[in-house]
Amino acid sequence: MAVLVDLLSWVLLMAGSLFCVTGGIGLIRLPDFFCRVHGASVLDSLGTILLLLGLMLQAGLTLVTLKLILILLFLFLTGPTAMHALARAALHGGMKPDVAADTDEVAP
């Protein structure tokens, strides 16, 4: 049973690390600001959830798990809120999404 929990925690930690690195690479490589918001949201939501779940499985039923749950709840509430506020502020501040020329005939 302990080996099973350890294995599950390992898988969750590795998946969280993978999504974190994916979000970081997207933060550098994506061409537009609004695309970069999408890349950072992957790091903010999926990477955070998977990493903290893996840590919770490692900690067991202790006070550390309670603190990890609090961190997870807080990040889960504030991460998308901050991203939404950021994208809205950028759109309000005059940044336009960089739409490519060859997608113009597809768009209505």
């Binding site: 600001f33 970069r36 950072a40 903010d44």
Partner: peptide
Amino acid sequence: SIYDRVLALNSFGT
């Protein structure tokens, strides 16, 4: 842009 820097700040904090 300045919004890219704010985005990087938020990601760095997370």
